[in-house]
């Protein structure tokens, strides 16, 4: 993928080197338990993380002592952070072009662990999206895993990861994510897993739609790039992962789709570039 010298998004929040702990350490809370009670009530009403509100109050009350140490990234990781900022900028250009009321998400780079609006997560969670704060989270060490453990090398495989998470953001803006997550608890685990697969395959499709339009605008796709993305989509299919982990597959437990499905829906998005072709929820077959 041709990316050097191109615009980088300014919606990247670099939290590498910061701890994602969830305690009160270093939080000078004034007002006692009454403030905590009020914050909990506000949090229950708004659905926000009370700790985030407490941290905001702490920041408003003046600077607190931070224990974070300067993060020393390798030159390769620095280059990777610039690369994902270019990919994010590409997604902004494409989705602003396709959707009139697109809100640009923030990409959080973290190392080790992170506190998101959806709770704490660590590197083992892998890249993820949180609709509560409209942010995507990536520990760049995942790309090493993608290349070595999942055998999916290449810069466009890396771009696909960002585009997939942005696809979830698009679903959130369209109200699809909330609808699906609202069904949790109303369905059996198996039934909910089926919905989850449809959500994930649609995010793969939207990643393909992004690739289609980004190439139309920037002509940045090089020979082998689409194969890299398809290989990555295939490498993280549920059947492949379960087979590797256990030696057998349990289709009812699939939450993201098979390798073949993930590859096919990405490809469909790339070939058509038409968001109306990606209704996985009403597709006769996935």
């Amino acid at each position: 993928m041709q990316w050097r010298g191109r615009r980088q998004s300014n919606h990247v929040d670099d939290q590498r080197g910061r701890s994602g702990g969830g305690g009160f350490d270093g939080l000078p809370i004034k007002g006692g338990i009454g403030v905590v009670v009020v914050i909990i009530v506000i949090s229950l009403i708004t659905g926000n993380n009370p700790l985030s509100l407490l941290q905001q109050i702490s920041l408003d009350n003046g600077p607190s002592v931070s224990q974070s140490t300067p993060y020393q990234a390798s030159p390769e990781e620095e280059e990777l952070s610039q690369f994902v900022a270019v990919v994010l900028a590409d997604t902004e250009d494409v989705w602003n072009h396709l959707l009139s009321d697109y809100r640009e998400p923030t990409l959080v780079l973290f190392s080790g662990s992170v506190q998101s609006g959806c709770g704490n997560a660590d590197a083992s969670t892998g890249p993820f999206y949180c609709s509560a704060d409209e942010k995507l989270y990536i520990d760049l060490s995942f790309y090493e895993e993608l290349k070595n453990r999942f055998d999916a090398p290449g810069d466009f495989a890396q771009a696909y990861v960002v585009a997939h998470e942005v696809g979830h953001h698009v679903q959130h803006l369209m109200g699809i994510t909330d609808k699906v997550q609202g069904m949790r608890g109303q369905l059996s685990e198996e039934e909910y897993n089926k919905l989850s697969v449809k959500l994930e395959l649609q995010a793969d499709f939207l990643a393909g739609v992004w690739a289609h339009h980004a190439n139309e605008i920037f002509s940045m796709i090089e020979a082998g790039d689409i194969d890299e993305a398809m290989n990555a989509a295939s490498a993280i299919g549920d059947d492949r992962l379960q087979k590797q982990a256990r030696g057998y597959v349990v289709p009812d437990s699939f939450t993201h789709g098979t390798s073949e499905q993930r590859k096919r829906w990405f490809s469909k998005g790339y070939q058509t570039g038409d968001i109306n072709q990606g209704d996985t929820f009403n597709a006769t077959s996935l």
């Binding site: 009670v37 993380n49 959806c118 969670t125 892998g126 997939h164 997550q181 549920d238 379960q242 437990s253």
Partner: peptide, 30 residues
């Protein structure tokens, strides 16, 4: 109330949407 606030970030993060199913998920469904 204090415990609820303190441990909130550690409660299951059901709204996190991951790129692929993880090892924990595999273990849970074994």
């Amino acid at each position: 109330l204090f415990g609820l606030t303190y441990f909130w970030p550690y409660l299951p993060a059901s709204k996190i949407i991951t790129l692929c199913s993880g090892e924990d998920e595999d273990k849970a469904t074994m």
